[in-house]
Amino acid sequence: AQEYRALYDYTAQNPDELDLSAGDILEVILEGEDGWWTVERNGQRGFVPGSYLEKL
């Protein structure tokens, strides 16, 4: 798994998404072809927009 940093804040719109704060460090589990990536942070897993992340 790769570590990424959130570039922007994101507020989850659905229960299966995660909130992001700019600067958060996340582990990317799966890069979805639809642009939604499965990530894990502090034991929580959910979808976030891949375009909001940069690889560390």
Rank of each mutant, 00 (worst) to 15 (best):
Q2T: 13
Q2L: 12
Q2H: 07
Q2A: 08
Q2N: 14
Q2D: 09
Q2W: 10
Q2K: 09
Q2M: 15
E3P: 09
E3L: 10
E3T: 11
E3N: 10
E3G: 11
Y4L: 03
Y4V: 11
Y4R: 03
Y4I: 06
Y4M: 06
Y4F: 09
Y4E: 01
Y4T: 05
R5I: 11
R5S: 06
R5L: 08
A6L: 03
A6Y: 01
A6T: 04
A6N: 00
A6D: 00
A6K: 00
A6V: 12
A6G: 02
L7Q: 09
L7C: 09
L7D: 03
L7V: 12
L7M: 15
L7T: 06
Y8G: 07
Y8P: 01
Y8K: 15
Y8M: 14
D9I: 03
D9F: 03
D9L: 01
D9H: 06
D9P: 08
D9Y: 03
D9S: 12
Y10W: 07
Y10K: 02
Y10M: 02
Y10N: 00
Y10S: 01
Y10G: 01
T11A: 13
T11L: 08
T11S: 11
T11H: 11
T11D: 09
T11Q: 12
T11I: 10
T11F: 06
A12D: 00
A12E: 00
A12S: 08
A12I: 00
A12K: 09
A12T: 04
Q13G: 10
Q13W: 03
Q13T: 12
Q13D: 09
Q13L: 09
Q13M: 11
Q13R: 12
Q13S: 11
N14F: 06
N14P: 01
N14W: 11
N14K: 14
N14R: 12
P15V: 10
P15D: 10
P15I: 12
P15W: 05
P15E: 14
P15Q: 10
D16F: 15
D16A: 11
D16I: 05
D16G: 13
D16C: 12
D16Q: 13
D16K: 15
D16L: 09
D16W: 09
D16R: 14
E17Q: 15
E17N: 02
E17Y: 04
E17T: 03
E17F: 03
E17S: 04
L18I: 10
L18N: 01
L18D: 00
L18F: 08
L18K: 01
L18M: 11
L18P: 01
L18A: 03
D19V: 02
D19G: 08
L20K: 01
L20V: 12
L20I: 06
L20T: 03
L20D: 01
L20S: 01
L20R: 01
L20C: 07
S21C: 15
S21R: 14
S21Y: 12
S21Q: 15
S21N: 10
S21H: 13
A22P: 06
A22M: 07
A22G: 05
A22D: 03
G23A: 02
G23D: 07
G23W: 01
G23Y: 01
D24F: 00
D24I: 02
D24C: 04
D24K: 00
D24T: 04
I25N: 12
I25D: 05
I25S: 08
I25G: 04
I25H: 15
I25W: 05
I25L: 13
I25C: 11
I25T: 09
I25V: 13
I25Y: 10
L26R: 01
L26H: 01
L26C: 15
L26Y: 07
L26W: 03
L26P: 02
E27F: 15
E27A: 13
E27N: 09
E27H: 11
E27K: 15
V28S: 05
V28M: 06
V28A: 07
V28T: 04
V28D: 01
I29F: 10
I29H: 06
I29A: 09
I29S: 06
I29D: 05
L30G: 14
L30Q: 14
L30E: 15
L30A: 14
L30Y: 13
E31T: 09
E31P: 09
E31D: 05
E31H: 07
E31M: 09
E31Y: 10
G32S: 14
G32P: 08
G32V: 06
G32R: 14
G32H: 11
G32C: 10
G32M: 06
E33A: 10
E33I: 07
E33R: 11
E33T: 13
E33F: 06
E33K: 13
E33Y: 08
E33D: 12
D34F: 06
D34K: 06
D34G: 10
D34N: 15
D34R: 06
D34C: 12
D34A: 08
D34Y: 05
D34E: 09
G35Q: 07
G35E: 07
G35D: 10
G35K: 06
G35L: 03
G35V: 03
G35T: 04
G35N: 08
W36R: 15
W36S: 08
W36V: 14
W36P: 05
W36M: 15
W36H: 09
W36D: 02
W37F: 11
W37D: 04
W37Q: 04
W37K: 06
T38D: 09
T38M: 12
T38W: 11
T38N: 06
T38F: 09
T38H: 07
T38I: 13
T38V: 10
T38E: 14
T38K: 15
V39N: 00
V39L: 01
V39Q: 01
V39S: 02
V39M: 03
V39W: 00
E40S: 11
E40Y: 07
E40H: 05
E40T: 13
E40G: 05
E40N: 15
R41E: 02
R41M: 12
R41V: 11
N42Q: 09
N42G: 13
N42I: 04
N42H: 11
N42T: 08
N42C: 10
G43K: 11
G43A: 08
G43N: 06
G43S: 07
G43M: 06
G43H: 07
Q44F: 09
Q44M: 09
Q44W: 05
Q44T: 12
Q44L: 13
Q44R: 12
R45W: 03
R45S: 09
R45Q: 13
R45G: 03
R45L: 05
R45I: 11
R45M: 14
G46F: 04
G46Y: 06
G46A: 03
G46L: 03
G46Q: 00
G46C: 02
G46R: 03
F47G: 05
F47R: 15
F47L: 15
F47E: 08
F47N: 13
F47T: 11
V48E: 01
V48M: 00
V48A: 08
V48R: 00
V48N: 00
V48D: 00
V48T: 03
P49Q: 04
P49K: 08
P49N: 04
P49D: 06
G50D: 04
S51N: 14
S51R: 12
S51F: 07
S51K: 14
S51H: 09
S51W: 14
S51C: 13
Y52I: 14
Y52F: 15
Y52S: 09
Y52R: 04
Y52H: 08
Y52L: 09
Y52Q: 05
Y52M: 10
Y52C: 11
E54H: 07
E54V: 06
E54Y: 05
E54Q: 09
E54P: 00
E54D: 05
E54T: 08
E54C: 06
E54S: 08
E54M: 04
K55T: 07
K55G: 06
K55H: 04
K55N: 08
K55R: 09
K55I: 08
L56R: 12
L56T: 13
L56W: 08
L56P: 08
L56E: 07
L56S: 11
L56F: 08
L56G: 10
